[in-house]
Computed example of a mutant assay.
Amino acid sequence: MSDPPVTEAKSGSDASRISELQKWLAARFGDAGKEVPDFEYTPRSVGYLHTLLNISEAKEKSADIVAKDFRRKAAEYRSQAARIREILESVGLAQDSLPSNVVGSAQVLANVANLLNIRDTELSSFLVAMGDISLRKSGVEEKRAKVQKESKILLDYTRKAIARLTYLKRTLAQLEDDLPPCEAQMENWKTNLQVMAAKERQYMQQCANYKAVLNRVGYSPEISHGVLVDMAEHRKELEKKTKPILDTLRSYQDLPPDKALAALAIEDKKRQYAAAEKYLEDVLHSALATSE
């Protein structure tokens, strides 16, 4: 039962705020010679515009107060100026009766006072203002020297940066010039690498084939090159020892056949041949034992 009155009160409040905003917008746009643009009055826009309205009214009140104060001070200054003018005229120092150089000097003095932002033309006020200007001048000179120093440092940094940039650009140009030959060299190396990989596969296959052949013929690691060299040397020695025997046997072929002598000679040669074979076997066994 209590909800509808609240809703009605809220709707009435929104309608009053919208009406107030419409009047305010019409007045503001009317002062600018423009018409109020069409837009939708949503709760968000109404709240935002109402905040602007409050801020505008507060600033207008502040400006009105300041303007009234300025008008009051201006009236006071005008009355004071009239009173001073009457005093000057009473003592014969009116502006019209003064020489032009005096009027010019007074105008210059007034301009200097305005420039120094002082309210009177007393000597002490000028001295204080000049001292303040001197202090500010010293501060400005210090800041200027600091800025010049920083500018010099920045200029030095800028020159170094420009030099480095120039060096980098020159290096980049050189690298770009060297890029095509390097790419060609890389392609050549790539081709050579492919060829070497193919050769490697071929040599590995050949090595596997040779190992298979060695295994098939009964090769073992004990039969090394050194062992074969020693065996070859012993073979040469045996050939030297057996050659005279062979020569003797061949000479016997030229003799007339004698069965008894031939049998004796054959038995003797068989014994010598058997002794030579046993010596060769002993040498081979000793060579194999040494290699192990």
Rank of each mutant, 00 (worst) to 15 (best):
L52I: 02
Q80W: 08
S100H: 12
G218Y: 05
L284C: 08
V147A: 14
E176G: 04
E277D: 03
Q253W: 05
C207H: 09
E183Y: 13
D31A: 09
I87P: 01
E237M: 09
M204H: 13
I18Y: 02
K68V: 03
V229D: 14
M196A: 11
A106V: 05
A197V: 07
Y203F: 14
A63M: 12
E60L: 15
A110P: 11
K240F: 00
R250L: 02
S124Y: 01
L154K: 06
F39N: 04
L261M: 14
Q202A: 14
Q107T: 01
K240S: 05
D3A: 05
K137F: 04
N192G: 09
K269M: 06
A58C: 01
Q206A: 13
D38E: 08
V147Q: 11
R201T: 14
L154E: 08
R78H: 06
R119D: 15
K143W: 06
K59I: 05
K278H: 05
L238W: 02
D14I: 08
E40F: 13
A145N: 08
L135Q: 13
A113F: 07
S90W: 03
I65L: 14
H50C: 02
L98H: 00
P5G: 01
E292C: 05
I87G: 03
V213E: 15
D178H: 14
V213K: 15
L49P: 00
D177F: 15
K73D: 09
A197P: 00
A94G: 15
H225Q: 06
M1H: 04
T7Y: 09
K73W: 04
E89D: 12
R164C: 09
L53G: 01
Q205D: 14
P244F: 00
S90L: 08
L249H: 02
S220C: 06
R72H: 12
T171Q: 12
A275M: 00
K169V: 03
V36I: 07
D230G: 01
V229A: 11
N192P: 04
A9P: 03
K137G: 04
Q174K: 13
S56T: 07
